[in-house]
Design a protein around this nucleic acid. Structure first.
Length: 716
DNA sequence: GACTGAGACCTTTTT
DNA sequence: GGTCTCAGTC
C-alpha cells in the first residue's frame, strides 16, 4: 500500500499527527483511539518522505511487549525489516549504550545487571555488615529509597547529610550499596538509566555524535515517564532534535513508582510552541461505556482535557451488582461469565479486573466451582524462578568472578558444606582486603581460614568453576549450562525436592536449556554476557499460555493496554478501590480515579461493576460503602442487577430466622428502619421470636436488631 | 541442613 | 486468613 492510501485509513486528527512537521509534538491519545497506529504510521511517514533515515530514529517504550509490537508493526508498514532502527525500552536502550561505551561509563566490559531480587539480597547483606539489623529501617524500604533516589537522578554523594537518624541510615545504606555494586561490576535497573544519562551529559563528543544521529525521537506512554528518563531524553534532544510523544494523562497510574504525570501535563511549558493533537475518537467501546468513563475522569483536576466519543452503538447500561459478601460477588461473576460463554462467546473475551491481588483467590475458587477455565496474569515470571536464578548465577560467575551477588547465591547451593560460619569469615576477609568474595574464598583457602568440610567443598567449587571458565569459549551456551547443571549437581538437587515442586523445577531448567538453544547470538558482543543481560531485561512473560480458551483475571494495573468485550470490575468499594492507602492524599486519589478510568475503558461491549456489602479481608470483616467512583457515574448509565433467586447463606449450619424463611426478608435485602434509615441485611442469628438480624445502615453502620421489634420494611 | 513454630506483613509492577 | 521470613532445635 502506498503512503497516500495508507493515510486514508486514518481519521483526520490521526493523519494530522502522522504528518505534523512540528519540532515538538504531543499526541494526547485517549483509550482505544489508535495510539500505536499513529506512532507506527508516523515513523514510516518520516522514513518514506525522506525526513529520517532508519538509523536516525529512536523510538522508546516502557515494556518489551510494546517495543516488540512497535517494531513488528513498523516493519509491516514498510514491508521490510527495521533492524537499523533503535526501538526499545528505556532500560534496553540504556543498556545498549552502556555496553557500547562501557569505558566512558566507567563500567567493566562484562558488567551484569542486578535485578530486584538480587538487589534486595545485597541490601540485606549490607544491613548486617553495617550493623543495622535492629534498625527500624527495613531492607525493603531501603531498596525503595535507593531506587527512588536514582529515579530522581540523585547519587548518594549528592544527598545533603541529614540530622534525622533514620534518614542518615538510609543514606548510609545507599552509599554502601553503591560501593558494593561498583566493586562487583553490577548495575541495577535504575542505575542503567542514571548511568546512561550521565554518560551523555558528561561526554560532549559522544552526545554530539548521538544528537547528529537521532534527529527524531518518539516516545510511547509518555505519561509514565520518570525524572531520569525525561532528563536522558532532553540531553539527547538538545535544541535541534525532533520529539514526538504519545500518551494520555488520564491513564497515568504509575506515580507510585516514580512516573510524573506533571511531565506530560506541562509538556507545552517545557517546549513552547509544541503542537498538541487530541485523539478522542474511540474505536473500542460502546457510547454508554465511554460516557461512564468520561463522567468519572471528569472529577479530576488539572487534566489536559479530553472527551472520548464513538460512532459505535449506544450499548447496554453498565451493570451494577451489590453482592452481600465477597463469596457472593465471586459467584455472581462466575455465573455471569458462564452464561455469556453459553450464549456463544469465548472465555478469552472476558476479563475480571481487581484492585489488588488478594482479591483473586475467592474469584478463582468460584471459577473452579463452575468449572470455568481461567488464567491469571502477573505473578512469578520465568527468569525470576529460584532454580533459573541459581543456574544463571553460575553463568554470571563464569562471566565475572567479581559478581558478589552471584557468588553469594551459589557458593552453597546446592549445599556443599560452606555454612554460615565459613561464609561469615570469607565475607569478613573480603571486607578487610577490599576484594570480591570469590578472591576472598581463594585467600581463605590459602590462609587456612576455613576448615574441614569447607576446604574440600571450596576446592571442588573452584576446580569446577575454573574448568567452566576455561572452556567457556569452546562450548555453546547450552553446553555450558548443561555442564554446569550436571557438574554442580544443581539439577539433581532440584530434582530431589519433594512433591511436584521438584518436577516443575527440573522442567523449568530444561526449558532454560531450550531457551539457550534458541538464543540468537548477537553479532557484536560476547554471547554469554548478552544472554544474561537479556534474561534480566526481559524476564519473560508470565506463565506460558496454554491454548485453551480461558477467562482473564488480572489487576487493573496490568490491564492497561488490553481490551475485552466483557469486563467485570470487581470490588468497587471504598477502602478497596479507591484503596484506603490513597484515601487521604488528593494526588493519590486522582491516580486511583485514573485507574478506574483505565478499568472502564477496557470494556468493549459490556461492563459489570460489582461490590460487596461485607468483605472478609485479612481475616476481618469489612463493611465498605460502594465506591465514590460508582457514584460519579450518572444514574442513567447504570442498571442495578437484582437477582431473582434465593441467596445462599455464607455461614453454613445456622438456621434462617422464621420470617426470613417465609421470604419476608432475605440476605442482601434492602430494608428501611424508622430511625436508622435504609440499610442492607447482612446476617441472621437464631430463630423464632428472638431471631436477630444484622443490618448495615447507610451512615449509621452495622446494627444488630431483634427482628420482631425492629419494624423493618423491605424496600428492595 | 532440614524442619518447626512464632511473628510480621498485607496496594498497584517493569525493567 | 494466608503467606513468608527468621530464629531456634534436632
Amino acid at each position: 500500500m502506498s503512503i497516500i492510501e495508507r493515510l486514508k485509513t486514518l481519521n483526520s486528527p490521526q493523519q494530522a499527527a502522522v504528518k505534523s512537521d512540528a519540532q515538538h509534538l504531543l499526541v494526547l491519545a485517549g483509550a482505544g483511539s489508535g495510539k500505536t497506529r499513529v506512532l507506527t504510521h508516523r515513523i514510516s511517514w518520516l522514513l518514506e518522505t525522506g525526513q529520517a533515515a532508519p538509523t536516525g530514529v529512536l523510538a522508546v517504550t516502557f515494556t518489551n511487549k510494546a517495543a516488540r509490537e512497535m517494531r513488528s508493526r513498523v516493519s509491516e508498514l514498510l514491508e521490510q525489516p527495521v533492524d537499523a532502527m533503535w526501538i526499545g525500552t528505556f532500560h534496553g536502550l540504556a543498556h545498549r549504550l552502556l555496553r557500547q561505551h562501557h569505558l566512558e561509563a566507567r563500567l567493566p566490559r562484562e558488567f551484569q545487571i542486578l535485578d530486584s531480587d538480587d538487589q534486595l539480597r545485597l541490601i540485606k547483606r549490607l544491613f548486617s555488615e553495617l550493623g543495622l539489623k535492629d534498625s527500624s529501617l527495613q531492607p525493603k524500604q531501603a531498596q525503595y529509597y535507593i531506587n527512588d533516589q536514582k529515579d530522581e537522578g540523585r547519587r548518594a554523594e549528592h544527598i545533603a547529610p541529614s540530622a534525622d537518624p533514620y534518614e542518615q541510615e538510609r543514606q548510609q545504606v545507599y552509599m554502601a550499596y553503591q560501593h558494593a555494586c561498583e566493586r562487583a561490576g553490577v548495575v541495577d535497573f535504575a542505575e542503567l538509566l542514571l548511568r546512561a544519562h550521565e554518560l551523555w551529559r558528561d561526554n560532549p563528543a559522544l552526545i554530539k555524535h548521538y544528537r547528529a544521529r537521532f534527529r527524531h525521537v518518539l516516545v510511547d506512554e509518555f505519561q509514565d515517564i520518570n525524572t531520569i528518563q525525561y532528563a536522558w531524553l532532553r540531553v539527547l534532544l538538545g535544541t535541534e532534535g525532533n520529539l514526538t510523544v504519545v500518551g494520555d494523562d488520564d491513564q497515568s497510574i504509575y506515580g507510585w513508582r516514580g512516573a510524573k504525570v506533571e511531565t506530560i501535563q506541562q509538556f507545552q511549558d517545557d517546549f513552547p510552541g509544541a503542537e498538541l493533537i487530541r485523539l478522542e475518537q474511540n474505536y473500542r467501546s460502546t457510547q454508554t461505556i465511554l460516557a461512564a468513563a468520561n463522567a468519572v475522569i471528569d472529577h479530576n483536576q488539572g487534566r489536559l482535557g479530553k472527551e472520548l466519543w464513538s460512532e459505535g452503538a449506544e450499548g447496554e447500561p453498565v451493570q451494577l451488582y451489590a453482592a452481600f459478601n465477597e463469596q457472593d460477588e465471586a459467584r455472581f461473576v462466575a455465573e455471569q461469565a458462564d452464561a455469556w460463554i453459553d450464549s456463544g462467546h469465548s472465555a478469552n473475551d472476558i476479563a475480571v479486573l481487581y484492585r489488588s491481588n488478594a482479591q483473586s483467590r475467592v474469584l478463582e475458587e468460584a471459577f473452579m466451582r463452575v468449572q470455568l477455565p481461567y488464567r491469571i496474569y502477573g505473578g512469578m515470571r520465568f527468569y525470576e524462578r529460584l532454580e533459573i536464578r541459581n543456574a544463571l548465577a553460575y553463568l554470571r560467575l563464569v562471566a565475572n568472578t567479581m559478581d558478589d551477588p552471584a557468588m553469594e547465591r551459589v557458593i552453597n547451593v546446592p549445599p556443599r558444606g560452606v555454612g554460615q560460619k565459613s561464609l561469615d569469615k570469607l565475607r569478613q576477609l573480603a571486607r578487610e582486603e577490599g576484594c570480591s568474595l570469590w578472591d576472598a574464598a581463594r585467600l581463605g583457602l590459602e590462609r587456612k581460614l576455613v576448615t574441614g568440610k569447607a576446604v574440600t567443598a571450596l576446592t571442588a567449587f573452584f576446580q569446577l568453576l575454573d574448568d567452566l571458565r576455561a572452556s567457556r569459549h569452546e562450548l555453546s551456551l547450552r553446553q555450558l549450562m548443561e555442564t554446569t547443571l550436571d557438574m554442580t549437581g544443581l539439577l539433581e538437587y532440584h530434582k530431589a525436592e519433594k512433591g511436584e515442586r521438584g518436577q516443575a523445577r527440573v522442567e523449568n531448567l530444561q526449558e532454560l536449556l531450550g531457551a539457550l538453544d534458541m538464543y540468537e547470538v548477537p553479532e557484536d558482543g560476547d554471547p554469554l554476557t548478552e544472554f544474561l543481560a537479556e534474561a534480566s531485561l526481559n524476564a519473560g512473560e508470565g506463565q506460558a499460555d496454554d491454548h485453551e480458551a480461558a477467562v482473564n483475571m488480572m489487576t487493573l494495573h496490568s490491564s492497561k493496554g488490553l481490551e475485552f468485550p466483557l469486563v467485570f470490575l470487581v470490588g468497587v468499594e471504598e477502602n478497596l478501590f479507591p484503596h484506603k492507602m490513597s484515601a487521604t492524599d488528593p494526588q493519590k486519589l486522582e491516580e486511583e480515579r485514573r485507574l478506574c478510568y483505565v478499568g472502564i475503558t477496557r470494556a468493549e461491549q459490556k461492563l459489570f461493576l460489582t461490590y460487596a456489602e461485607s468483605r472478609r479481608l485479612y481475616g476481618q470483616d469489612n463493611f465498605n460503602p460502594v465506591s465514590r467512583f460508582v457514584r460519579e457515574i450518572p444514574e442513567r448509565l447504570l442498571a442495578e442487577v437484582r437477582l431473582n433467586m434465593q441467596v445462599s447463606r455464607p455461614v453454613s449450619g445456622v438456621a434462617l430466622g422464621q420470617d426470613a424463611a417465609e421470604g419476608a426478608i432475605a440476605l442482601g435485602a434492602l430494608v428501611r428502619h424508622p430511625i436508622f434509615g435504609d440499610g442492607v441485611v447482612l446476617n441472621f442469628e437464631g430463630a423464632g421470636p428472638n431471631a436477630t438480624v444484622q443490618v448495615n445502615f447507610d451512615g449509621e453502620g452495622i446494627k444488630q436488631l431483634v427482628y420482631q421489634f425492629a419494624k423493618l420494611e423491605v424496600i428492595g
